[in-house]
């Protein structure tokens, strides 16, 4: 088989193929409308980030709205903030649970403005930077912060209590977090700017998930980004480093929603959820998923009935 055919023929084949593929893309458009792609005005497409707590919160929102007779579509486990915010803006999803401080950081060039750290400050500051056509409803008391966490042994070995204690030893330590930490302000750039921290190596893993916990426990990494509500902290006796410079702001949970989907029913239902959520009960219900392996829908249902919302 010779490969000496003319470039012209190759070009013709590429063109033919491209045309055929474009054609088939257009053909499948009608399916898009009838499929589960959202976009029908009556139903609310709910998204979540790619970690269990976000999925639990999204499921709680979903069931709370369903209890009001609204139609919802679930589009969970999308990815990191950088990705799901795009999905929100292009209308793939209408609503998702967010964390006020992280959202503010993500939406503000160079991190959150100075002097903003209390939940109310953050909420206030958020109003100015939300993407057009979106808004946040009332925030809950429940907080889940990004943390830098180490094992008890590492803490003892280097005498670590706060993030600032890492500074003299950071060049010997490997840090692990979701890939987005490489560029996110609340990741490495912020740690460098606020604390002057530069680690020996960054290992891109997952958003406080099993990779990060696993790597922390088996010594692949020394410092990990773990969420403060994660049951793994208690189960594995991990040490959460304090954050004296408040790089990690208030992280209250709140619904981020496309404005066109906001009406009285939606607002009331979601505000009731926010009012019922606390850091304690969130941690407790999340443990039922993470430790007891109960499924998300069951735990969400239990939360709503235990708190008397549904």
């Amino acid at each position: 088989m010779s490969r000496s055919h003319s470039a012209g023929a190759t070009f013709a084949a590429v063109t033919a193929l491209a045309l055929a593929l474009t054609g088939c893309g257009a053909d499948s458009d009608p399916l898009d409308d009838s499929g589960s792609d959202g976009g029908s005005s009556s139903s609310i497409a709910i998204g979540s980030a790619n970690f269990p707590e976000s999925e639990l919160l999204a499921e709680i929102y979903a069931q709370a709205l369903e209890a009001e007779g609204l139609e919802v579509e679930r589009s969970f486990n999308i990815g990191a903030r950088e990705l799901y915010l795009q999905a929100l803006q292009d209308g793939s999803i209408d609503l998702l649970p967010e964390y006020n401080g992280a959202l503010l950081s993500a939406l503000t060039e160079g991190g959150a403005p100075e002097g903003v750290s209390s939940p109310d400050d953050v909420y206030e500051a958020l109003q100015d930077v939300l993407p057009e056509g979106t808004e946040v409803l009332e925030q809950s008391d429940a907080e889940d912060k990004d943390t830098l966490t180490v094992t008890q042994e590492t803490a003892d070995e280097y005498g670590l209590e706060t993030i600032a204690d890492l500074v003299p030893v950071a060049d010997q330590l490997v840090i692990g977090a979701g890939p987005e930490w490489a560029e996110r302000y609340q990741g490495l750039p912020g740690l460098k700017e606020v604390y002057g921290l530069e680690f020996k190596e960054f290992r891109p893993l997952d958003a406080g998930g099993p990779l990060t916990i696993g790597a922390l426990l088996d010594g692949t990494i020394d410092v990990g980004n773990v969420f403060s509500t994660d049951s793994a902290i208690k189960v594995n006796d991990l040490v959460v480093l304090e954050d004296p410079e408040e790089l990690y702001l208030a992280e209250n949970i709140l619904p981020l929603i496309r404005s066109e989907k906001v009406d009285e029913t939606v607002t009331e239902a979601l505000n009731a959820v926010s009012a019922a959520l606390t850091t304690e009960n969130l941690t407790e219900y999340l443990a039922r998923i993470q430790v007891d392996k109960e499924d998300t829908a069951t735990v969400a249902e239990a939360f709503l009935s235990d708190t008397g919302l549904v």
Binding site: A80, E82, L83, G176, P179, E180, P204, L211, A215
Partner: peptide, 19 residues
């Protein structure tokens, strides 16, 4: 890369996470 190792998948997974 989806389970935290290297390889060219890093460009895909990290690119995805960072949009």
């Amino acid at each position: 890369a989806a389970v935290g190792l290297g390889g060219l998948g890093r460009l895909l997974i990290d690119g995805l996470a960072l949009n």
